[in-house]
């Protein structure tokens, strides 16, 4: 047997062996694990000292589209202490449009100092947007040791552009 062939056969054997050994028939190891460990979320403790939230969010007309994209700048919170796996939900609400949305962030212990939170971009249909500006509400809600704490709740101006 020549060397390239040995190398190729060994590689194929490795792939097949790992696959079969971890398979349900033999089950030597479970190689497929959820990438994010969801256990214990919302448990732990956190102390928030300060919060900085944006004063305006924008509804921008998409490129070559008739839809609007809601762009919310990130908010920051200063954590004096952090343990366990608390979560923070950063949310925006525009009552006039009947619109609300929030993005939940997972924190992990030891991550003290400033932490930045974002809200994923979202699409709004054009028919719903008619005014130049709306009043909105931004919230940061901390979930730790099974309790929900509102760490920020402030009004924000929603500017329509484009």
């Amino acid at each position: 047997m020549d060397r390239p062939r040995v190398l190729v056969s060994l590689t194929a054997a490795l792939v097949l062996t790992v696959t079969v050994l971890s398979g349900p028939a033999i089950g030597l190891a479970d190689l497929t694990q959820p990438r994010y460990d969801m256990s214990g979320l919302g448990e732990g403790d956190a102390t928030v000292d300060r919060v900085e939230a944006p004063s305006t969010v924008t509804l921008e007309r998409g490129y070559q589209s008739e839809s609007y994209y809601l762009v919310v700048p990130p908010a920051r919170a200063y954590f004096a202490s952090l343990s366990g796996k608390p979560t923070v939900a950063y949310g925006v609400e525009i009552p006039e449009l009947g619109y609300s949305r929030s993005t939940t962030h997972f924190l992990s212990g030891g991550e003290t100092g400033w932490v930045e939170f974002s809200i994923a971009e979202d699409t709004l249909r054009n028919r719903t947007v008619s005014a130049d500006r709306y009043d909105g509400q931004l919230t940061l809600i901390l979930r730790a040791s099974g309790e929900k704490t509102v760490v920020h709740n402030g009004s924000v101006s929603v500017e329509v552009s484009g």
Binding site: V15, L16, V18, T19, S22, G23, P24, A25, L31, T32
Partner: peptide
């Protein structure tokens, strides 16, 4: 899937 974890079937197939 009777011999391999379904989550790895396509990985193995693609590698081969």
């Amino acid at each position: 899937t009777s011999v391999a974890d379904f989550g790895l079937v396509f990985t193995s197939l693609w590698s081969l």
